Computed example of a mutant assay.
Amino acid sequence: MLARYHLVRGRRPEDDPLPEGKRYDTRKHTHHILRPTPEMVEEFLSDLSQAGFKRFRAAYLAALDERFAEQRERFDALAQEARQGDVFLGCNCPTAHQPDVRHCHTWLALEYFARKYPDLDVRFDAR
């Protein structure tokens, strides 16, 4: 199963425990295959309008397509890991500044995996 989870800075609330399974930090400063670039994130956070999200979405999906073409084995490995156990993609979204989790790169990554690997159990949680 592949899903997302919310990374928390500081102490995690007791009513929001970490999910059990493999958790990956996929934020912009990591080296994860699903990270957005810092430039994409900065541009989107400077314009959270629907048009700004549309630009972010297009840029992020283009980056995933490029990485998929160049490093398919990393995507396949992640999909296989999610077939064998629970895998979670982490980000700080939603935040006070960007409250719509459907505008988070992890949500877009889940949509991408659902398209590329139709046999994969991909779960969307709007928390």
Rank of each mutant, 00 (worst) to 15 (best):
40 M>S: 08
46 S>F: 08
80 Q>A: 13
4 R>I: 03
38 P>N: 13
6 H>N: 09
122 V>M: 03
110 L>T: 01
121 D>K: 10
126 A>F: 06
93 C>Q: 12
86 D>M: 09
28 K>L: 06
53 F>Q: 02
115 R>I: 05
8 V>E: 03
11 R>W: 10
5 Y>N: 04
98 Q>V: 10
124 F>A: 05
42 E>Q: 13
78 L>D: 05
108 L>C: 07
25 D>K: 02
120 L>W: 05
6 H>F: 03
49 S>L: 07
89 L>R: 01
6 H>Y: 04
6 H>I: 11
47 D>R: 11
23 R>A: 06
11 R>I: 14
64 L>I: 06
119 D>S: 12
75 F>W: 10
11 R>F: 02
19 P>Q: 09
8 V>K: 02
114 A>C: 05
77 A>N: 08
95 T>K: 08
32 H>F: 12
46 S>P: 03
73 E>M: 00
25 D>E: 02
123 R>N: 04
120 L>T: 08
18 L>A: 14
10 G>N: 02
41 V>F: 06
85 G>F: 05
73 E>S: 13
85 G>P: 03
6 H>Q: 14
36 P>L: 06
39 E>S: 12
52 G>V: 04
42 E>F: 11
28 K>C: 02
116 K>R: 15
86 D>V: 00
49 S>M: 08
99 P>A: 09
37 T>N: 01
26 T>Q: 04
55 R>V: 12
107 W>A: 09
17 P>A: 08
6 H>M: 01
119 D>R: 03
67 R>Q: 10
89 L>E: 01
22 K>F: 11
82 A>M: 04
117 Y>W: 07
52 G>H: 03
88 F>P: 00
47 D>W: 10
118 P>S: 08
34 L>D: 11
65 D>F: 00
98 Q>W: 00
119 D>P: 04
102 R>C: 01
82 A>Q: 03
117 Y>N: 08
7 L>I: 14
18 L>Y: 01
81 E>V: 04
112 Y>A: 03
63 A>G: 12
43 E>S: 13
89 L>H: 04
69 A>W: 00
23 R>E: 00
15 D>A: 10
93 C>P: 05
24 Y>V: 03
37 T>Y: 03
16 D>Q: 13
42 E>M: 12
72 R>S: 11
62 A>T: 11
94 P>N: 09
30 T>S: 01
25 D>S: 01
14 E>N: 06
30 T>H: 02
57 R>P: 10
2 L>D: 00
119 D>I: 05
64 L>M: 13
8 V>M: 10
99 P>D: 04
104 C>M: 07
2 L>T: 09
40 M>Q: 15
105 H>F: 12
59 A>R: 12
44 F>N: 04
56 F>Q: 08
57 R>E: 15
53 F>E: 00
99 P>G: 07
27 R>P: 05
77 A>W: 11
6 H>S: 06
102 R>I: 01
43 E>T: 14
34 L>A: 12
58 A>E: 14
23 R>D: 02
63 A>D: 11
43 E>D: 13
81 E>H: 08
11 R>T: 14
63 A>S: 14
59 A>N: 13
77 A>T: 04
113 F>C: 00
28 K>Y: 08
96 A>H: 13
80 Q>P: 05
124 F>H: 05
49 S>P: 05
72 R>K: 13
